[in-house]
Design a protein around this nucleic acid. Sequence first.
DNA 1: CCTTGACTTAGAGCGCACTCGAAGCCCTAG
DNA 2: CTAGGGCTTCGAGTGCGCTCTAAGTCAAGG
Lengths: 139, 139
Amino acid sequence: MKIGELAKRCGLSAHTLRYYERIGLLPYADRDRSGQRDYDASILDWLEFLRRLKTTGMPIRDMLRYAQMRADGDETFSERGALLRKHRERVRTHLADLEACLRSLDKKIAFYGKAKQRTDADDGLHEHEDEDTAPRPGA
Amino acid sequence: MKIGELAKRCGLSAHTLRYYERIGLLPYADRDRSGQRDYDASILDWLEFLRRLKTTGMPIRDMLRYAQMRADGDETFSERGALLRKHRERVRTHLADLEACLRSLDKKIAFYGKAKQRTDADDGLHEHEDEDTAPRPGA
DNA sequence: CCTTGACTTAGAGCGCACTCGAAGCCCTAG
DNA sequence: CTAGGGCTTCGAGTGCGCTCTAAGTCAAGG
């Protein structure tokens, strides 16, 4: 598979795939006689794994650490596990925060829905103090 | 309340608070006779609202749109509601993606736990689905 | 009085993760 | 034979969201 097709399949641009290889997030791809990258389909699994790390907010430098550890072999096994567990904790925390934000957003939208696009939105306040301040939990 | 205290209370730096004012995310704060900003505690509500938008991934330019609409008054009421509903949809989608990523991460971590820090972790036998990873970077 | 520290401004600089451009090579279809 | 499209390299450029600097003002404490 050439880079164009891989790009289509994984959803990243060819530019980005080359960039990932340059920084070490992707292994150096074999080149055909004319120097073009020739990928094995298995690379898609790694790219999907990277996508999940990225989606969950892991910075590239940490993915790089993981990739490097992997390249370093078995002796880094438990360290890799630890990295992932630590990351999972951050993800869980973030997820909880997001859910709380979503509930606040729901409340605010409910307010917008109820208050019938009229002045009463401003339940008194003006300027920068209206309903936006929302019913806050704590603080 | 002066900017230093507001910074402490809201968790942003004074630099960032001034930056927010500059770009229009915070209203122009009243200055005391010596030119220093003097905040009302109510600004904390707005900052908390902004924090939630930020946490849920809204870019500053969209928060700015919202802030501008609010400043424009009641005629933008339904538009603001629409903006928030649209944002909520994106948040829900993202949340679902995150949860899926978290489940994959759980599986992978389970794999790391089971495979008792031995070779079999890497090389070839990653359950087709657990060890989505396969490369040897660098090179 | 004088120092300390928090504040003011406009603007420059930074880290991240891409994203693009330029110049050139190779293969294929017309 | 030639044009087109996709590929190559690598360095420069982009957009975001801060983050910091420099030079200066001001109020309080020793």
